[in-house]
């Protein structure tokens, strides 16, 4: 898969496969293309070239030609795929004009078309799971960053996604708030959920992931089972990256 921003290619020939129940974490320094990779997966950014499969479906994409970027050919398909890939954003992106209960219930109501009462039930259940049951009628602005991110996770979970995508979920948080969010992510990993996690929290990544990929300059420099990759990296660059982060 290749992706090009206006100026320079961001991803250059990346191949990555995620199997069920895997927790894959994607490491790399800033600008290595790890967030772009994640955003390409649910087509918030459309790669210029390449092939993608999600849940056994080949995604219908148009390759870039003559200065026109790649594009989605079948919007219905992409909407269906997005609904089954839960995304958690670095900056939470909760809707400020809705309470967090409404934020979480929006997907079940309008995408999964569940009856209102059922959707509220689902939303309450997931807000309870991330420890926000008593805050459900609060607006995002009245919550701390950690609480907002946990609400963001609940919003993704309420869609019952097959895969969860985390795009640096703790990077916008104060250090004392990252713990509560990591705790939620860890419990999701223990449930056996399939997850892709872009993060700078190396110690955490090592602990929860089954597989890890290290990106550099738009390519996957090294990929493998976490146990091996973190203990005995083959690439010199990864070795240095890991050393500088401990």
């Amino acid at each position: 898969m290749r992706n090009r921003s206006a100026i320079t290619p961001v991803l250059r020939g990346v191949t990555l496969t995620a199997h069920r129940h895997e927790v894959i974490c994607i490491l790399g320094s800033s600008g290595s293309g790890k967030s772009t990779l994640l955003r390409c997966l649910n087509l918030l950014e459309v790669p210029n070239r390449g092939r993608m499969w999600a849940l056994g479906e080949r995604l219908k994409l148009r390759e870039a030609v003559n200065g026109r970027g790649g594009a989605v050919l079948d919007r219905r398909q992409i909407q269906r795929v997005r609904a089954s890939l839960g995304m958690v954003f670095q900056s939470f992106n909760l809707w400020p004009h809705r309470t967090i209960l409404e934020n979480v219930a929006e997907g079940p109501t309008h995408v999964l078309r569940q009856p209102r009462r059922e959707a509220i039930g689902v939303a309450e259940q997931y807000l309870a799971q991330v420890g926000l049951a008593d805050r459900r009628h609060h607006y995002p602005r009245h919550l701390s960053g950690g609480q907002q991110q946990r609400a963001g996770i609940a919003r993704a979970l309420a869609m019952e996604p097959a895969v969860l995508l985390f795009d640096e979920p703790t990077s916008a948080l104060d250090p004392e708030l990252t713990g509560e969010v990591l705790k939620v992510i860890r419990s999701l990993a223990e449930e056996g959920r399939t997850m892709l996690l872009v993060t700078h929290e190396i110690a955490f990544a090592r602990e929860v992931s089954t597989r890890a990929a290290f990106m550099h300059d738009g390519k996957i420099e090294e990929e493998g089972p976490s146990q091996r990759l973190f203990l005995d990296p083959a690439s010199e660059r990864l070795r240095r990256f890991l050393q500088s982060h401990y």
């Binding site: 909407q79 890939l85 954003f89 900056s91 992106n93 004009h97 997907g107 919003r155 993704a156």
Partner: peptide
Amino acid sequence: IPRGQWEAASSIGLKSWQIWLLVILPQMVR
């Protein structure tokens, strides 16, 4: 309206008209 608002809405699979109606209009009115 920040880009992330659209992205969050499309990431859960909302259609464009739903994004306009549920997320964009209520915020832009203000």
